[in-house]
């Protein structure tokens, strides 16, 4: 059995992302990320939970440098990402797929063009502008679109699709990059509960099929518990929980969500801010 019929031969090395002592500070304020350490190995689906403002999104964006880290180190499969510039940075970004909360599609382009935009780093400028995509990329696009159930929309404009369909386009675009890791920033926050479950299931299944580690920011704890292999809880720029989903008990929840508006959702009265 090849990996999900994507025609792709992936090296059998274990994918690894290692973040050490990561600090991000905006301006002169309190750091958003405080000496954060995190290691992700293998093809696991890891979710990051925490109240808004905990630094989840900043952490994810530091990995592909959409946000510039202030200090610390991020190593993906042996490449130190924090020091890269220009062409090298773009080359590294190609290996990191990203799925966004707002889908971030180009509305006026067709689904195929949106999907192919994941390959922009690989094809010539002329091919990109003229829409002369390599045959192999088109075949792969159709296969992936087939896999997520949007192949019949290839010629439709992205803004004609529903939210769930749009997110599937976003996922396929990221996978077109042949990433070594997939980042998903609140991928289901703009979707209704049912679609949201579908997308989470899809991400979990794809991770298995493509042997791809997936790192998901998510605010829905129930989804995190159901669909991911490991949960990382963040609070005020630090990781205060990192374990299997079944270990996330009420006590851990209280620690992650205490003193924040999300405390209500976690079902506990907000306790005092703990000194951390």
């Amino acid at each position: 059995m090849g990996p999900a019929g994507t025609g792709r031969v992936r090296n059998r090395e274990i994918q690894m992302l290692k973040i050490t002592e990561l600090v991000k500070r905006y301006g002169s304020g309190d750091p958003v990320l405080k000496n954060l350490n995190l290691t992700i190995e293998g093809e696991s689906v890891v979710s990051i939970i925490g109240s808004s403002g905990a630094g989840k999104s900043t952490l994810l964006r530091c990995i592909n440098r959409l946000v510039e880290p202030s200090s610390g180190s991020i190593v993906l499969n042996g490449t130190e990402l924090t020091k890269l510039r220009g062409r090298e940075l773009r080359a590294a970004r190609r290996k990191i797929g990203m799925v966004f909360q707002g889908f971030n599609l180009v509305d006026r382009l067709t689904v195929m063009e949106n999907v192919q935009s994941g390959r922009l780093g690989y094809i010539s400028t002329w091919a990109a502008v003229m829409r002369r995509y390599p045959k192999e990329d088109i075949r792969r696009a159709y296969e992936l679109m087939e896999r997520v159930g949007i192949a019949h929309y290839a010629d439709k404009r992205a803004d004609e699709l529903s939210g769930g369909e749009r997110q599937r386009v976003g996922v396929v675009r990221a996978l077109m990059q042949k990433p070594e890791i997939l980042l998903a920033d609140e991928p289901t926050a703009s979707l209704d509960p049912k679609t949201s479950e579908q997308i989470m299931g899809l991400l979990r299944d794809l991770a298995g099929e493509l042997k791809l580690p997936v790192l998901i920011n998510i605010h829905n704890v129930a989804e995190a518990k159901e669909y991911t292999d490991r949960i990382v809880g963040m609070r005020y720029g630090r990781i205060i929980f990192d374990d299997l989903p079944e270990k996330l008990d009420q006590d851990a929840m209280d620690k992650i969500y205490s003193g924040s508006p999300a405390a209500d959702r976690a079902g506990t009265p907000g306790e005092m801010r703990e000194a951390s």
Binding site: G5, T110, M112, E113, R131, Y133, K135, E136, I138, R139, A141, Y142, E143, E146, A151, A154, D155
Partner: peptide, 12 residues
């Protein structure tokens, strides 16, 4: 499995 398509043209 559908036949593999490897051509695509932008709808004019």
């Amino acid at each position: 499995m559908s036949t593999a398509r490897d051509t695509w043209h932008r709808p004019p």
